[in-house]
Simulated assay, not measured.
Amino acid sequence: MKFCANLSLLFTEVDLLKRFDAAREEGFTAVEIQFPYEAELSELVNAQQANELSIALINVPTDDLMSGGEGLACVKNKRDKFKQAVDQCLAYAEALQVDCVNILPGRSLEEKNRQYYRDTLMENLDYAADQLASINVLATFEAINTEDMPGFLIHSTQQMRDLLADINHRNLAMQYDIYHMAKMNEPVAEQLQQLLHSDKICDRIGHLQFADTPQRGEPASGELDFNALFSLIEQSPYQGWLGAEYKPTQSTAASLQWFSPYKD
């Protein structure tokens, strides 16, 4: 299995650029960054190359999503702004040679607007998938639990599957986050067993992320059986990255006991 460290949540004891060094020192060969745009692209490239790290995934900018707003990808009157965000992301994705770019669907703050927002999301996902295909980068999108992000438009595995079926784009896949789906009380092990062994376009997983429930800590800090989950993934045909996107309950280095058996 291929594990990558999420530098937005791990190694926060040091500045972002120094987290590349920390990840390499702990044995990671790849990292992911939620929103790398706070750093100069040239500095990120230098830090990446100095540590010989792959960049598994970055996100398209999301406007006001992280501060409680609707975001970009599902809001029709922000389509131009979304395209600008995709352009910015393309520049980073190409220079950093990322494998995947994730598009966060956003919120529908009023239930009556949900279908209207879903239609916009479909248009924007199709557009982003086209643009990313031009630089050979896979587009993904994810479901997020509605406890952490109330009103989030896509919050179940079935909703992701339905979108993939409706859009039917060869360069689009779901990002399956074990933590978010477990928080929604979905049968994670059963779903992964089905999805990872399926060849249907609606079941395609392009990237996996994980954290334990209920507090989003490292494996073995909560309720989930990660020995079983990792074994299930390891025995599947899945060839993508597994992103450690958790909030350490102790120092990052101390939280990495789960990673010891998987280091190169």
Rank of each mutant, 00 (worst) to 15 (best):
Q158H: 12
N168L: 06
M184H: 11
V188G: 03
I144G: 05
A143T: 06
Y179F: 14
A143P: 07
P150D: 10
A173T: 06
Q175S: 10
Y176C: 05
V137K: 03
T140K: 09
H169L: 05
T146M: 12
V137R: 07
N171S: 09
F141P: 00
A182F: 04
M160R: 07
A173P: 09
R161L: 09
L138P: 01
D166Y: 04
A143K: 01
M184D: 00
R170F: 02
A182M: 06
A173M: 14
L163T: 05
L153H: 03
M174P: 13
L164M: 11
H169N: 09
L138S: 10
A165F: 11
T140H: 12
R170K: 14
L172C: 06
N185F: 15
I144K: 01
Q175A: 05
Y179E: 01
F141E: 00
L172E: 10
F141S: 03
T146D: 01
D148P: 00
T146R: 15
I144R: 00
M181S: 09
L138H: 07
M174I: 08
H180K: 07
S156H: 14
K183C: 13
M174N: 10
P150F: 12
M181I: 02
D177R: 11
R170Y: 08
L153T: 00
V188N: 05
N145R: 11
N171H: 09
N185L: 14
A143D: 01
Y179I: 00
Q158Y: 06
Y176H: 08
R170A: 14
L138W: 03
D177F: 01
K183Q: 15
S156N: 12
L138G: 04
I178Q: 02
A143E: 08
F152Q: 01
V137M: 04
V137H: 03
A143C: 08
D162F: 02
T140P: 08
L138D: 07
A173D: 13
E147I: 13
M181K: 04
P150K: 11
P187K: 11
A173I: 11
H169M: 00
P187L: 03
M184W: 07
Q158T: 12
A173E: 13
Q175W: 00
F152C: 02
A182G: 04
V188C: 09
N168W: 08
E147C: 08
T157R: 02
D166Q: 13
L172Q: 09
M181L: 14
M149Q: 11
M160H: 04
I178F: 03
N168P: 06
G151N: 09
Y179A: 03
A173N: 11
A182Y: 01
M174S: 09
E147K: 13
N171W: 02
G151C: 08
M174H: 11
V137P: 06
H169Y: 05
L163N: 02
